[in-house]
Computed example of a mutant assay.
Amino acid sequence: MMYPETMEEFADWLASSALGHDLLCREQAFFDHAVADIFGFRAVQLGLVDYDFLACNRIPWHGYAGMDGQADVVCDPAYLPFDSKSLDLLLMPHALDFTSEPHQVLREAERVLLPEGRLVLTGFNPFSLWGASRLLYRRRRVPWCGNFVGTSRLKDWMTLLQLETTATRFMAYSPPFARADWLARCRFMEQAGEYCWPQLAGVYGVVAVKRQRGMRLIMPRWQRAKPARSLAVASGNERQPINRTQANETSHE
């Protein structure tokens, strides 16, 4: 299950700390770009309902679920109260980081998605400066108490569940300093990290699509139209084409 107190503390940390606010801005930009061109009928954000990561999505129905009392649907992410194959888009901001059953949460995400539905999630990278900071803080407080599921492990889980990764974005390359001025001094690492050490970022974002086994899209087979055939009537050495209607009238006469 997800730990509601931990998620609430994490939501407060994003809003109150300099490091959290910096991360929140980066993740908001990631979600805004990832969901802008996803269409359908129903979209759900699972967790961190204080922040609207569906704001740039044009699906008509948006729902917000989680263990927070402000959510539209209060539920355990490991056992979602949605019908199977009912959602076109599911967002999970750090939903796998603060749960005791990350694989079960991912399995539920696959269950509720329609074929060709989209899953967009973010998570902490254990193989980064952020992951190393967990040893310093001994996992006693947010966000260092999270699971920090690596991208390789995550993609292995997705492959088993027929969730195909279509895009991966890395962010937060600078050390996780608590002070805003120290973060500003390390701003150059954000641009350099994308080219030099992309997989060592503190946070990753993943976009995946649910594939249906045995399902194949049937595309129309367009063929070029053939010209209508005509009949030729010989008169001496000349040949004049006439259509079939004229030929029938001639035969009746």
Rank of each mutant, 00 (worst) to 15 (best):
R185H: 10
V142D: 05
R42M: 12
I59D: 11
C75M: 07
C196L: 15
V149S: 07
M67A: 15
A109P: 01
G47T: 11
P81M: 05
V73I: 15
K226R: 15
I59G: 08
F127K: 01
E5A: 13
N147C: 06
Y64N: 07
M215G: 15
L160M: 00
F41M: 04
A247Q: 13
F98E: 05
Y173Q: 04
S152F: 09
G202W: 08
F31D: 04
R221V: 08
W61V: 15
L183R: 11
R216K: 12
N237K: 12
V105M: 08
H33A: 13
I59L: 10
M67W: 07
L90Q: 05
Q246A: 12
T122E: 04
S235R: 13
D97T: 01
S174I: 00
D76C: 15
F41L: 04
A184G: 02
C56V: 00
D52A: 12
V35C: 04
Q191N: 07
V120W: 06
R229M: 09
W182A: 14
Y3Q: 07
S251E: 09
D50A: 10
H94W: 00
R187S: 09
P176V: 02
E253V: 11
V203M: 08
W222Y: 13
V206D: 08
R118V: 15
S84I: 02
A180P: 04
Q212F: 07
D97C: 01
F124W: 00
M171P: 02
T151K: 10
L89E: 14
L19M: 11
M67R: 08
Y204G: 08
A178T: 15
P198E: 09
M215I: 08
R111W: 10
R185F: 03
A29D: 02
E238R: 08
F31T: 06
F98T: 00
S128R: 07
M158H: 04
R187N: 07
W13H: 06
R211M: 09
H62N: 15
M219K: 14
E9D: 05
L80K: 12
L24K: 08
E8P: 04
R140C: 15
T159Q: 11
D12K: 12
A234Q: 12
V120G: 02
W130Q: 07
L231K: 05
I218H: 01
H33L: 15
A172G: 02
R187C: 05
P175E: 00
D97W: 01
E253I: 07
T165M: 15
S152D: 05
Y173W: 13
M2Y: 02
A36M: 09
F177K: 06
